[in-house]
Design a protein around this nucleic acid. Structure first.
Lengths: 328, 328
DNA sequence: CTGAAAGCGCTTACAG
DNA sequence: CTGAAAGCGCTTACAG
């Protein structure tokens, strides 16, 4: 059961491979008799012909695969939703997206050379060397970054703004002593550092004391230790900005264990609006991200990179907002 | 900046492409002078040569890519961990795993023909037609399934056993009226149906009344409605087996809203041991899965499929156990 | 021990 | 309007 090739279709249709190729690719500028066209099409269909991507890629140096490189992050509902949107939107444009989880330290080059994608979509930033190597090989590089950056072509999800938004929400409710709950998982450091930076900056801007930072593991004991740290100084924190909702839930459990009421004694705000945020006691106030808008922007960027005639998209703004619930 | 090919390496080394190929692939059975070998190797290194996978694939009809097909499921920490393990373990064997999120309804054939992977690893089952087409094309198909199945070569994560384990745990604590909390997200139906089937079967085996099933959305109102349903009959449920931890957390919030104590009035058990399960009030009892063992088994299956000399692995057993916390 | 040549399946200038 | 031929980069029988 050998593979069906264009030669088979040509033979069966009584035409040359050239014609088959013209017909199947709806080649512009060549005119093929309607009868021939139909015959080729139906033969291809009947034989179950699908072009060999390997051959096509070898020929053109370009495939219709988009390689999405995921850094060594933990994948929660947010990234999951992003990938979901990216996959379906790219599929609408005839592109298949494959996700590579960059957990190992294999050189990235090995992978993209192997796959020969038409574009590589980096959810985290690439090293300059990697990016250059890909561009030289004719692969479009679309990256996103975690904060402002000299490259205007790179999509930015300004993580710092998230921290700023958390502080703004808390300060508007009269809190002055704001603490920060950092994640214990190092894979999150890239995000955590930037969000914290935003928290610190906004506190400074508002003349609030610098936030006391504690690492919070996802267990009650760790959260209790953090809570004690926050409450022990001469100006005990009355509000906690947490790295994300999971950390915020840990903080909630620590507060509960210490007999503190939320939000009366201490207010808590998370990030992500994970499904269980609204189920917490009390329901968790959090920062929501417009993942669909981010996905659409990235897809549009890929399409623009692939085709000069397509305009690069406008950056979406207003991709965050606070969802106020009962914990603040 | 054209691509560096084996011809470039050959020219620079003063040998033929044949020799370059032999050296670089450490071809068994041919002897190459050590001097030549070293020269070729260093030239390749210096030029930054990486073979074109497209050409190699075209030539051999086989790539070193493993395509992992993810059905339209929601990806939580469990699947995330599974993919993580699969990626790193396959990388250790020189295989790159790419994940395809089968959200759209594009025919699978388009994808695997485009990628020409050496193996396709299905996390859900393939249709028989898809599986046959792939095998015919010489692609190894390794699938996993959700329950027992006529195909012994397919890995099975017996979802029904999870349900059985939940009931066993609850029944041993004296519960007779056991309710079931099903998820509202249809993408989970494949799992949910099987787990429920296990719950029903185990109740029957123990002579317990059939469980009252309520769909529970991930919000308090929905959970409250479910709780009322379970508590209204003439034999009010004293225990709830939930589809997974998220649903269990919703149940917890519904119970709380109704003023019922856990576990005194109603016990709750989930599945997955998500990070926030231990943070709930009370900490959630749940069923844990040995994801690493499942991943290792799948990787070993892929390797065995790829190489006749490699023995297929033994199925891991004992991949589940109950983690008892405070909600039961 | 090493090289010349064929061929994997495709697309596309170039002829007719 | 259609076909013969070249070439993408690789590997491997087959010679020498």
């Amino acid at each position: 059961m050998a593979r069906v090739t264009s030669a088979d279709v040509a033979r069966e249709s009584g035409v040359s491979r050239t014609t088959v190729s013209y017909v199947l690719n709806a080649k512009h500028g060549v005119t093929i008799t309607e009868a021939t066209r139909l015959r080729v099409l139906s033969t291809a269909e009947r034989l179950g012909y699908t072009p060999s991507a390997a051959a096509r890629t070898l020929r053109s140096g370009r495939s219709d695969l988009v390689l999405c490189v995921l850094p060594n992050w933990t994948v929660g509902p947010v990234i999951d939703a992003l990938i979901d949107h990216l996959t379906t939107e790219l599929a609408d444009h005839g592109l298949s997206m494959l996700v590579y989880n960059g957990r190992s330290n294999r050189p990235l080059a090995e992978l993209w050379r192997a796959v020969t994608p038409c574009a590589v979509l980096g959810l985290g930033a690439f090293t300059e060397a990697d990016a250059q190597a890909m561009r030289r090989a004719g692969i479009q590089v679309v990256g996103s970054a975690l904060d402002e950056d000299p490259h205007p072509e790179i999509f930015v999800v300004p993580q710092a703004n998230i921290g700023g938004l958390q502080v703004e929400h808390l300060a508007e409710r009269g809190h002055r002593a704001i603490a920060y709950a950092a994640p214990a998982d190092d894979r999150l450091a890239a995000f955590a550092d930037r969000r914290l930076r935003g928290v610190v900056a906004e506190c400074e801007r508002r003349g609030l004391p610098a936030p006391v930072v504690e690492r919070v593991d996802l267990d009650v004991a760790s959260a209790v230790a953090a809570v004690r740290g926050w409450r022990s100084g001469d100006e005990p924190a009355t509000a906690v900005a947490a790295y994300n909702d999971e950390v915020a839930l840990a903080v909630l459990s620590g507060l509960r264990a210490e007999g503190l009421r939320v939000p009366e004694d201490v207010a808590v705000i998370g990030v992500d609006d994970i499904p269980t945020a609204r189920l917490a006691a009390p329901a968790l106030t959090t920062v929501w991200q417009a993942i669909d808008a981010q996905a659409s922007y990235l897809v549009a960027s890929v399409l623009a990179a692939l085709d000069e005639n397509v305009e690069p998209p406008q950056r979406p703004d207003d991709v965050f907002h606070v969802i106020e619930r009962d914990s603040t």
